[in-house]
Computed example of a mutant assay.
Amino acid sequence: MTAGPGRPRSFDRDAALERAMLLFWERGYDAVATRDLTGAMGIAAPSLYHAFTSKRALFEEAVEVYGQRYGGYIDDALQNEPDARSAVAALLLGAVRQQTLPGHPHGCLIISGATNYSPASAEIAAGLRERRAHTAARIAEKIRADIAAGTLPRETDAQHLSTFAVSVWHGLALLARDGAARADLEAAAGTAMQAWPRPPAAAPR
Rank of each mutant, 00 (worst) to 15 (best):
A173N: 09
V166L: 12
T34Q: 14
P153S: 15
A187D: 12
A137P: 01
S162I: 06
A3C: 06
G127W: 05
R9Q: 15
P8V: 10
G103Y: 14
Q79W: 00
F59M: 02
S121T: 02
D76W: 00
E18C: 06
R154V: 15
P197L: 09
A89P: 13
A16E: 08
R131D: 04
D178S: 14
G6S: 04
V65S: 07
K55P: 00
A3V: 03
S167E: 02
A120C: 03
T34P: 00
V96W: 01
L92G: 12
R205A: 12
L185E: 10
W169D: 08
I143T: 09
L161Y: 10
P119L: 14
A202V: 13
A173V: 04
T156K: 12
I139D: 11
E64H: 10
P119A: 13
S112D: 10
G67A: 09
Q194Y: 07
S47N: 11
G171V: 08
A125M: 02
L92Y: 15
G179E: 08
G39D: 15
S118R: 14
Y73M: 01
E64D: 12
S167L: 06
A126Y: 11
E61K: 06
P8I: 10
G127H: 03
F164A: 12
I43N: 10
P200W: 11
L91Q: 01
Q68M: 02
R132P: 00
D83Q: 07
D178R: 11
S121A: 15
R144Y: 04
N116R: 11
D178W: 01
M41Q: 07
M193R: 09
A189L: 12
L101Q: 15
S54M: 07
R154F: 13
D146S: 12
A176Y: 04
D178I: 00
Y70F: 11
L109H: 04
A165S: 12
D157N: 15
C108D: 14
M21N: 00
G190N: 14
R198A: 15
D14Y: 08
L109S: 02
P82H: 14
V166T: 12
D76S: 02
D30Y: 01
A125Y: 00
R85P: 07
Y73H: 05
A188S: 15
D75L: 04
R19N: 08
A90M: 07
I139K: 03
R177L: 09
A20Q: 05
L93P: 00
F24S: 02
K55S: 06
